[in-house]
Computed example of a mutant assay.
Amino acid sequence: MRRLFPVTDQTADRDSGGTDREWSLAELAAAYAYPGPGGPDGRPGAWLRANMVSTLDGAAQHDGRSQPISSAADMRIFGTLRALADVVIAGAETVRQEGYRPARARAEFAELRQAAGQGPAPVIAVVSASLELDFSLPLFTAPLVPTLILTGAAAAPDRIAAAERAGARVVVAGDGAGVDPARAVRALAELGHTRLLTEGGPRLLGQFVAAGVLDELCLTVSPMLTAGDAQRIAGGPSVEVPRRFTLASLLEEEGFLFSRYRRD
């Protein structure tokens, strides 16, 4: 993996000699570090980052899953972003399709997380209006840290009770059946989770974009073409005026581009 554009460090040179090398996990962690308290522009509260992958023709999935369009380097960055986060937010359908399991503690990041005042692994937060989830899965029965479920005030009481019996913590972040994106971010921040990472899916990411609460997008561009009718990385409601993001860094390995954009 090599750096193409050292956007965040204007004094940095490209790798000497132009040879490729694999970045260490420590280097990746430094490259993808969250901004300090309040973010670079001084805004208080949480910092919401998204991590997504897309083919050249805009497909966010193949056969309903992201793994076929990913790569080993993409998974290294995926793991690094998780290791830096307080909480990983995912929509219920993504949890089902991707077979989500509890986040694990990784020895390589233990010291970094401890220094940042974080627990051994990020919390998984599932966004679900219906709470129609399989609470017998390890995500709920055997997480290292209790799984959160973000839902609306109109969620069925019996489903809330089932989630809590399974060991999950239910957080109300909406007045109706669904979750309000801005309220979800605030609720997580109030629980002490300020380094937020969402892995989608597309509908959830689209809601965060439309609500104007997405701070950063880490997008892997996969050198593949799939055609078909797969979803884009973000769907759902559109914004009135397209939002401008600034390129913060760009890495490359074997034709895969690993971009990081921050909103202006």
Rank of each mutant, 00 (worst) to 15 (best):
A12Y: 06
E240N: 04
C218E: 10
D180H: 12
I77A: 09
S54W: 05
R113A: 06
G36F: 13
E190G: 01
I77D: 01
S71P: 06
Q114C: 06
E252Y: 12
L56D: 01
A33C: 08
F135Q: 02
I233L: 15
T147N: 05
G117T: 08
A92Y: 05
S24P: 01
G58E: 03
Q10G: 12
A189M: 09
V87T: 10
P157K: 09
D229N: 13
I124K: 07
P102Q: 05
L214R: 02
A83V: 00
A83H: 07
G236C: 11
R159G: 01
D41L: 14
P35K: 08
T246N: 10
R232E: 09
P37S: 08
L251D: 01
T226N: 02
A90G: 15
R3L: 15
Y100C: 10
E240C: 00
V171C: 09
A92D: 04
L25R: 14
A92P: 00
P35S: 07
D9P: 05
A182L: 10
T151V: 13
T220G: 08
D134T: 12
A90D: 08
E253G: 04
F109R: 04
L137E: 14
T94K: 08
R82L: 09
R2Q: 08
G235D: 06
G119A: 15
T198M: 07
A166E: 03
L250S: 10
V239F: 06
R165E: 03
A156P: 00
Y261V: 03
A103W: 00
R96N: 00
G206M: 07
L197I: 10
G36R: 06
D41T: 14
R2W: 07
S259I: 02
Q10I: 09
V170E: 02
P143R: 04
A29M: 11
G99R: 11
R195E: 01
A211Q: 02
F78G: 05
D264I: 12
E240V: 13
T194F: 00
G91H: 06
T19I: 12
L197S: 04
A189W: 12
A230L: 03
R260L: 08
L219W: 05
D158V: 08
L191V: 01
S249W: 00
F5W: 14
A142M: 07
V239A: 14
R203F: 09
Y100G: 12
G255E: 02
G45W: 09
C218M: 08
F78W: 15
V209F: 10
R3G: 11
A211V: 07
S222F: 06
R169E: 15
E240Y: 00
L150K: 05
G117C: 12
A92M: 05
L137V: 11
R96G: 01
A59H: 03
F140Y: 15
R232F: 10
R21F: 12
L28A: 02
M75I: 11
F140W: 11
L133G: 01
Y100D: 09
S222R: 06
G64W: 11
D41N: 13
L112P: 00
R159F: 03
T220D: 06
E93N: 15
L48Q: 05
